[in-house]
Design a protein around this nucleic acid. Structure first.
Lengths: 345, 345
DNA sequence: CTGAAAGCGCTTACAG
DNA sequence: CTGAAAGCGCTTACAG
């Protein structure tokens, strides 16, 4: 254990010796850098193959890149994030970059800890999915490391890129669809947030809901409720809402998971969907399609969001500094949960 | 950009100068290593705080540990993995270790790529969740890096630790429960695997199913079907099975997600659950509890599995070399989907 | 208990 | 196009 000089590890130097070239030359081949002849490159490649060389990421990280991208997820329960990851992987396949995920647990302190850990590990870029962090905090982080963000509108941000669907339009699509089905008394079920950020996607969905209601002359029916994050608490809030005298005819929930809980409570209360109550979600996750849910939802193309964000991030790592803000058009997928009011169809 | 000597980064050397001690001393404080006086330690801590020092993980990785644990997940769709992660985080909070996740996409080649990437980044240990890799491959990886595995029984493996629930018992619990509800013609719906590993948890659930059927004198009813991974394909297989003349009275599905698809198909076909057909899943994920599913399932305490595995892994990193194989007792959670046969209740 | 020095495996100017 | 040398920020024996 004394001196590890000949510990068996195949390093850039082993390869250099085997190929009969300098260490610097091997490094250049490794990085696909400019200034090596094809002959030399071929020799080095052969030696690498033969010796089973694997670059030591920590050593690379000391001087150059780590070829690691940090992806921050709010949680592991929402299957929507799987769509986003599929897009990220699609963008990164055939590149040298490896995505590694951290879970923020929807808590600002945990998010900070995870982001710090990623920066400490010299990750080349950060892809933040629906972070709770404020714009100031994000700008600060983006000064240290390239950042792209999904699921939070900050069109004015000039330190990092954003990729979103048009949440306001999404909210409008829902209201118009429900109105066509004969529903008038439509409420919005939002998330109970300690610090409601202005540009958050939830807030924009609500704005879309409000503006469409007004447009359709339904301003008097505008009502916004909110429920916490976890299953139990959602049920309590939903039960309270559905048992009240002023129960709405239709409930637009900010995300699918909440809508599924509402469907559950409606069934327990003996309400029939969609005649007594219409329910609409957001994200169009796989569960919407099950016959027992048949949940109408907004598809925001998670895979495209992920693909686009990963591309913007790698561009930024390569040097672009002007911020880009990409917005996708959402699409409503109608299912049984909003098929029409009793007596209207 | 020429020489970065004074680039502003706070390093161990900056701290040493500020505290008026040696670089080696700071390193020792950083690692909580033996052989520093309380006075020196206090001085160093103060300087670290004051300067906002953050250890450079890549540099640490060059010589010692990276304090990073790699967690390999098969996919991001199954909410069961969120329970496991909660346990992992619980075990790691207040330690220096940071878990970072990679997604294997249920494909051996991707799993290999992710594991290689983690090893290249000098992660201190790997926590593999239900990997597809063979025992030989796992033993080989475990020779390079400490490994703990969840969701795959390999009691004989002596190179790494395993943490599992007793899947065979789980399978037996399901059959006994269904039998008590008056079901006799009980089938098992397994996963279509290219290379079915012997000790895989799915295989053990099947064994439990078989042995319990025999025990109850139902050997003649033993039937094992299988379906692929993805939603669409599962539905096709389920539809075929439920439309056949020899439709079983009860279907035990290897995991909740498949059971939810079966419930969906049953509803589409106009079958009533549980009188025409009982359905049981495995993992007791949050969706089981929704009224529209009311899915009976086996709870294998994902959080405990994760907690235990993370503990074993850190022990192993600290030096233990004897393998440990931990097994948890599963528990059946009965819900409406298996309440009893028509005419029996 | 404390510190000077070597070295981990790369990348980066720089000189040839 | 090619290579020798310095250095990234730590940890690790080793000597004092």
């Amino acid at each position: 254990m004394a001196r590890r000089a000949t510990t068996g590890r195949v390093t850039i130097r082993t390869v250099a010796e085997d190929a009969g070239v300098s260490v610097a030359a091997v490094s250049k081949v490794l990085r696909d850098a400019y200034g090596v002849s094809d002959v030399l490159r071929a020799k080095v490649r052969t030696s690498m193959q033969k010796l089973g060389y694997r670059p030591h990421a920590a050593a690379r990280g000391m001087r150059g890149q780590t070829y690691t991208l940090g992806v921050l997820l709010p949680d592991l329960r929402n299957p929507f994030f799987a769509d986003i990851m599929a897009g990220i992987n699609e963008a990164l396949v055939r590149t040298q970059y490896q995505p590694l995920l951290g879970v923020g647990e929807s808590a600002i302190t945990t998010e900070h800890a995870v982001i710090d850990a990623m920066i400490d590990r010299q990750m080349d870029g950060l892809l933040l999915i629906a972070p709770r962090l404020s714009r100031e905090e994000l700008e600060k982080i983006a000064r240290n490391v390239p950042v792209a963000m999904i699921g939070n509108h900050m069109p004015g941000a000039d330190g990092f890129d954003t990729v979103n669907n048009d949440d306001e339009l999404g909210g409008q699509l829902v209201v118009r669809h429900l109105n066509e089905g004969g529903y008038r008394n439509i409420a919005f079920l939002s998330l109970d947030l300690p610090t409601p950020e202005q540009g958050s996607n939830i807030r924009l969905r609500e704005q879309g809901y409000r503006s469409a209601m007004r447009e359709l002359g339904l301003a008097r029916h505008i009502r916004v409720f909110s429920a916490p994050q976890t299953g139990r608490d959602i049920q309590v809030a939903a039960r309270h809402l559905l048992q009240s005298r002023s129960r709405p005819e239709a409930l637009f929930c900010w995300t699918d998971f909440v809508a599924l809980e509402v469907l559950s409570v409606a069934r327990e209360l003996g309400l029939s969907v969609p005649s007594d109550l219409a329910v609409v979600g957001y994200d169009n996750t796989t569960y919407c399609d099950l016959a027992q849910n048949a949940l109408t939802s907004i598809d925001q193309s998670g895979q495209v969001l992920g693909l686009q964000a990963a591309r913007l991030l790698t561009e930024r790592i390569k040097g672009r500094s002007a911020a880009e803000h990409f917005v996708i058009t959402p699409r409503l997928v109608a299912r049984g949960s909003s098929r029409g009011r009793a007596g209207d169809g």
